[in-house]
Simulated assay, not measured.
Amino acid sequence: MKRNIVIATLTAAALATGGTVAAFAAGDDETATQRQSSAGTQVVADRDDADDRADDVNDDADDADDREDDADDRTAVATGDVDVTAAEAIAAALKSVPGTAVSADLDDEDDSGKVVWDVDVLGGDTWHSITIDPATGKVLGSHTEQEDDTAQVRAALKGSSVTAAEAAQAAAAKGAVTSVDLDDDGGSRAWDVETRATGKADQDWQVDLNSGKVTTDRSDDDED
């Protein structure tokens, strides 16, 4: 009788011990799963951080390219590589393709390092982009483009008396004109002109479409 009681007690103890071991084992499995899940989450977070850093590097590179292009343009103006004014570039473009000049920009041609005038001319319903040599005024190339704002541009220029070339000439007293573009947004429609002068920062001007009056462009200040 006592022997049976002892055996029963030992059996219960063994079961209890086994259950505890099983519980510990289960606990270990759960902990391992949690650790694996946590590690996976950390890998994803690290990958996201790496992608963010790569995006920042690309943004910095783009900014550096923009600054380099601006520096090339300034160097060209300062060293006399640009003998042809914005007004003269527009005149040369209009001889090649009759129409209405809407913009002229001194720019780096296809990132090749060569600075050229890019003149946009609206002829009929077709947009023409014409490349002008800034040293000789020679037409280097021309191609047509598709634009969605043709009607908007025509509406902005309707009834105006000051052309892009005349706007460039009016602003030339402020410095070397490097771009002239039509600002057709909002109610204050005008020619936007950018100039560069030795020892001074680039300046933006607005030229009235009818009077030709030159005023400081305050739009950048408003955005700041």
Rank of each mutant, 00 (worst) to 15 (best):
I7E: 12
L10H: 11
L10C: 13
A13N: 01
G18P: 02
G18Q: 09
A22R: 00
A23V: 10
A23Q: 07
A25M: 13
D29P: 07
T31P: 08
S37H: 14
Q42L: 15
V43S: 11
V44A: 13
R47T: 15
D48Q: 14
D49M: 12
A50C: 10
D51T: 11
D52S: 12
V57I: 07
A61W: 11
R67W: 05
A71G: 08
A71L: 13
R74K: 15
T75N: 13
T75H: 13
T75C: 12
A78N: 06
G80S: 02
D83V: 06
L94F: 01
L94K: 03
S96P: 09
V102S: 00
S103A: 07
D110W: 08
D111F: 04
V115D: 15
W117L: 00
V119M: 09
T126R: 00
I130W: 00
I132F: 00
D133N: 10
P134F: 03
P134S: 01
A135Y: 11
K138M: 07
G141K: 04
G141Q: 07
T144R: 12
E145V: 02
G159R: 03
S161H: 05
S161I: 02
V162A: 03
A164D: 10
E166V: 03
Q169E: 14
A171Q: 06
V180M: 03
D181I: 08
D183S: 10
G186F: 10
G186N: 01
A190F: 06
D192S: 13
D192L: 04
K200H: 12
D202Q: 13
S211V: 07
E223T: 08
